[in-house]
């Protein structure tokens, strides 16, 4: 008799436990406190923090004001990825570009690129037709992302260094910024 009562109760309990512990897919704010934090990779909130810090530093420096015809034109150079993961560096540079454009202090050239390859080939063709429309970038934005790992027992630590330089036509770095983000833990977790 006892078994007859106990079995359905146990089954119900197991089902409820399953429902309660699983997290259904839901939307979270990008870069918010509910985002997953992992030590083994760069998370979206890391790109956001690095981009915010770099843009803040660049705008505060006033380096973009030192051009004869403002707003300054910036060409995006090479961002070297020295981490163990495959990353799209546009996750960092695009945010900076959008923020600079919104500030009204700089415009990015999409027709100037490494090896003469602009990121927008059609715009590059259009520009070649109209020679008067050409404007050489005032600055080049380049940088490097570096990963430094450390471990003590089960605890892993990763430091990601986002290094950026703004170089003028004379080859002088008129602004340089570095943002380091360190994360420590035994496993990935949700939230800051």
């Amino acid at each position: 008799m006892k078994k007859l009562i106990l079995l359905p109760v146990l089954a119900l309990g197991t089902v409820l436990l399953g429902l309660g512990c699983g997290t259904n897919a839901h939307y979270v704010a990008t870069g918010g406190r509910e985002n997953i934090v992992s030590t083994g990779e760069i998370n979206i909130q890391d790109y956001l923090q690095a981009a915010e810090d770099s843009t803040k530093s660049l705008l505060a420096s006033g380096a973009l004001n030192r051009v004869p015809n403002p707003p300054a034109v910036v060409g995006v150079g090479r961002i070297i990825n020295n981490t163990s993961q495959q990353i799209d560096t546009d996750l960092l540079t695009k945010k900076i570009r959008v923020a600079l454009l919104q500030s009204g202090k700089a415009i990015t050239s999409t027709t100037y690129g490494l090896g003469g390859q602009g990121e927008d080939p059609l715009a590059q063709q259009m520009q070649q037709q109209d020679k008067t429309a050409q404007r050489i970038p005032d600055f080049s934005l380049s940088g490097k992302i570096i990963q430094t790992l450390a471990r003590a027992g089960d605890t892993h630590q990763a430091t990601y260094s986002f290094q950026l330089s703004l170089t003028d036509r004379q080859g002088l770095a008129v602004w340089e910024g570095e943002k380091e983000i360190t994360k420590q833990g035994k496993r990935a977790s949700v939230g800051f």
């Binding site: 870069g31 909130q45 956001l48 923090q49 981009a51 915010e52 843009t55 800051f192």
Partner: peptide, 25 residues
């Protein structure tokens, strides 16, 4: 603003700390 990031930070006991922000426009 694309850069309105939520910034994680920490402050030691009894410490004074400065945080800063720059307007996007």
């Amino acid at each position: 603003n694309v850069l309105s990031a939520t910034i994680a930070s920490q402050i030691e006991g009894g410490e004074d700390k400065f945080i800063s922000g720059i307007a996007p426009h």
